[in-house]
């Protein structure tokens, strides 16, 4: 039996509520303060924790959709590359998996003709702000977004990736995600593994690892969850890099 700390009488029966997360915020803070000075309560918390840790194991397994991983990893890779650029001790993000660029497909000239009328041309902005952070020249291109008034989408280019930042995007149709495509002059659009869903306020980020050299256009379409080898959905945006 361990010795108890000050205020033990008040707190001794709160151990289980604490490990279950059933104390309100103020109580939890006060209890943790008590815990720091009370070996008896610490011992009991340690004794009860394994049972609390077993509780989540009792739930029915439900698989997360692949788009969740795509969304989380896009953000993680974006932040990783910022960190890599920020300090010499940080590492570069891992190279893009090979499968991203394996496909070569023919894409009909859907870009200019089909959507030109609906395009909301926002113009092109050249940004230098991020260049200082990254330590290399960087260019920011504003995409033309179609059929989504108020939406904006920017592509930032650096030597080793393209990064998309968007605001005010509509959600894609149910069960679909936005996918990023790279178009080079005289070649079919290449699919990328960059897929994303905007958050509820319409904000989204995605990154396309690899050099953007020779890429004329970055396109975004909505595709079935998991992506497509060739564009099937509506064209949401086009960024002209050339």
């Amino acid at each position: 039996m361990q010795t108890s700390g000050p205020g033990h009488e008040r707190w001794q029966d709160a151990t289980a509520a604490y490990v279950l997360g059933a104390l309100d915020e103020a109580e939890r803070d006060a209890f943790e303060e008590h815990l720091a000075g009370c070996p008896a309560c610490r011992e009991e918390v340690d004794e009860l924790l394994p049972a609390a840790h077993a509780l989540p194991m009792s739930v029915d397994p439900v698989e997360p959709p692949p788009s969740l991983k795509a969304r989380i990893m896009a953000e993680v890779e974006r932040e990783a590359s910022l960190l890599a650029a920020a300090g010499p001790e940080a590492d570069r993000p891992p190279a893009a998996p090979e499968r991203r660029r394996r496909f070569t497909l023919r894409v009909p000239r859907l870009v200019p003709s089909v959507v030109a009328a609906a395009l909301l041309v926002i113009g092109i902005a050249i940004g230098v702000g991020a260049a200082a952070l990254r330590g290399e020249p960087e260019r920011t291109v504003t995409a033309q977004v179609s059929g989504a008034p108020g939406a904006s989408l920017q592509v930032e280019l650096s030597g080793h990736e393209g990064r998309l930042t968007a605001r005010g995007l509509p959600a894609p149709p149910r069960g679909r995600v936005y996918q990023v495509w790279l178009k080079r002059e005289g070649h079919a659009a290449e699919p990328t593994a960059a897929m994303f869903l905007p958050s509820r306020d319409g904000a989204a980020t995605a990154s396309v690892p690899g050099s953007m050299e020779g890429v004329d256009q970055v396109m975004i379409t909505d595709e079935p969850d998991g992506g497509s080898p060739q564009p099937t959905g509506r064209l949401l945006a086009v960024a002209d890099l050339s």
Binding site: D13, A16, A17, L20, E47, L48, P50, A51
Partner: peptide, 13 residues
């Protein structure tokens, strides 16, 4: 309530 939580968790463990 707190007592039940505590007893229950101990038994579960």
């Amino acid at each position: 309530v707190k007592g039940r939580m505590r007893l229950g968790l101990k038994k579960l463990r």
